[in-house]
Amino acid sequence: MSFEPILLAPEEELEEIYPYRRVWRTSWIEVSLLLIAVLAIYSLTTIVAIIPADSREPLVKAGVASLPLALWLAISYRGERRALQPRPGLLGVMVLGILVANGVAIPLEERVFVPERWLPAAGFFGRVLGYAFTIGFAAEFLKYAVLRYAVWPHRFHRRLDAMAYALAVSIGFATALNFRVALVTDATVLATALRVASTTFSHLAVGLIVAYFLVELNIGRPPIFWISAGLLLAALLSGLYYGFRGIAIVSGLSVEGTGSAPIRGLALAFGFVAVMFASIAFIVQSADARTEALAGGRQTL
């Protein structure tokens, strides 16, 4: 007489439903697609030569300038709408980003700071500090003001909420600057594409810093100069990016001539946003784990 073993299926563990849009995943996709698009324009211009090197078609340039916004709408915003618990007011924050950039940042740059008349001639540290304390700080303060007075603190429930809103305002801000480059300047299609990628990547990267400082002000107990420190850090980072970008795109003097290396500028911009995304994601994850541990939700090593 034999007994067949009775096999019991393990109890099925229900996967916890994550009701929010995954901010980092969608942002990585957007950044990667923008990089691919700009690399394609670069290849079509310099290698395959389908796009004339001196092409300045305004419609094409406007299309290139609108690419980051289109990607954000198609990926992040669509993802948000399809999430179980969408973050409200994201589109409004993006529009406010466009408005403050167009209404305040651009006039400040063109009429007050006029950086093109004095920054290029300054040395490395002069460029870093000069940019940080003019254009860099103004941009970060305006993005902070949008977040602070439009969605903080009632929409900042989790740290990732702050990141989602910061990326929205940064995309709006960068879009206004991108359209100015495309429609006001005499840049070629390739130069516009490279500038659009550089501007968008740098604003996405630096915009996260102020958002992190803002959400910690909501969740934690930071000192009274917390936001000021965050603003200065963000401005300084944007100044450093500007300084290194100048070094990266100038290929130096040689017997064959002088010239620029725009692809190195693109690589720097992508490297910058990649490092910032990875760093802030790590910091947010660590802070969330620490908060949960302190609340007794789970033990961490």
Partner: peptide, 30 residues
């Protein structure tokens, strides 16, 4: 909270200070 209020005030004071510093930097260079 007290901290949140003072963070907001200090951010505005800092913005004014940096604006003045930025214009000074511009003028000293130009």
């Amino acid at each position: 909270t007290f901290t949140q209020r003072w963070n907001t005030y200090l951010a505005i004071v800092l913005a004014v200070g940096v604006m003045v510093l930025g214009i000074t930097l511009r003028d000293s260079n130009l």
